[in-house]
Design a protein around this nucleic acid. Sequence first.
DNA 1: GCGAAACGTTACCGGTCGGTAACTTAAACG
DNA 2: CGTTTAAGTTACCGACCGGTAACGTTTCGC
Lengths: 205, 205
Amino acid sequence: MSKKLPDEAPGAAPRVRDRIFQTARELFYRQGIRAVGVDAIACEAGTNKMSFYRSFASKDELVAECLRAQVGEFWLRWDAMLAPHAGDARAQIEAVFASAAAKSCSENDCGCPLSNAAVELREAEHPGHEVIREYKRELRRRLRELARETGAADWQVLGDGLLLLLEGSNSTRLTFGGRGSPLSSAPELVRALLAVYAPAGRRKR
Amino acid sequence: MSKKLPDEAPGAAPRVRDRIFQTARELFYRQGIRAVGVDAIACEAGTNKMSFYRSFASKDELVAECLRAQVGEFWLRWDAMLAPHAGDARAQIEAVFASAAAKSCSENDCGCPLSNAAVELREAEHPGHEVIREYKRELRRRLRELARETGAADWQVLGDGLLLLLEGSNSTRLTFGGRGSPLSSAPELVRALLAVYAPAGRRKR
DNA sequence: GCGAAACGTTACCGGTCGGTAACTTAAACG
DNA sequence: CGTTTAAGTTACCGACCGGTAACGTTTCGC
């Protein structure tokens, strides 16, 4: 606490660890986790492998930490996205899918980094597994909660439907292009599901 | 054509190339493409690396051929699955999702091998890319065709909805367990979408 | 100024990667 | 029989993998 951290100075070079971390997140997301070695990460971050291992115990630990950071930032954006429509679950759901559609339509989007990591990391003992698993469970929980707040009787099914549409949008992103892809239909499909499962359009409480 | 092929004899050892091919497909699917080396494939197939390269030009070519075989077998199963309900697009759609749900609920299922390959193979020049791309386009085309045959006015959107639900089911398979997973709700969600987009329940022609 | 972190540099380790050369063995064929 | 073909065997290649040891250099707090 008494340490003076010369970080956060605008224009100043960030600490090596942070540079490595951000570089790794970018490379992992764009090229895939298994396709990027620690040498490439360190080099791209403007340092070398030795400095890498001074900041991270292993590549697997770095991967897990990248995934944790991804989850944390995602929920921050999630909360900020739902806040303007507090109390209106229907609007919140539509905001989620509008945001997902917008992000996916942008160039250079590679889908959900957590889902992609689940495909790449198949060894059962990888430290990233728990991160992915916990994230997906939480995502399902939140979507079901939103579905419940719409007043839908079958809110579990509706929530799972939202989850499947969201995951499907992420999954198709790598093969279908941004515009004209099936995920541009997602917002309309969400409204269709809402029309079936929460037909009254009644707001929470 | 004058060659006598001593293959297909029941109980006889298949040709080396076929053994390698089937072994590779299994290992690629279970452990991931990048996680399996040609040495492991050859060894698991009961032969060695040299025999591998006598049958396949490179690992990338083997991967592409595995993906092509997967696509071919998938459409064979697809056609066989739809045949009993010829002329009834609604029943055909439900058959597709019932089959997908059944397969996903089984143990050891790892989702769609083509979607997984799309995540693992990010180099733009990989020969497997075209296979994946063509398969996904064809899948979308067929689902939209089925949607159109239900008489739905917005059959493009309905078809894309079916695609997203299917891809979402595949994507969630690696993180959520077989039973009680969101994909068990998929058949019910399909009926909901059909109720919205093809409410008359009218059959083709 | 001084000690102590933080960081850069070089070399190295064993292992595995995809891929190849050269040689041997065995079986199928006429 | 001899020839051809498929297949097994061994050794090897350069490159890269994740990870480490040892040693300089810079920078910062005190």
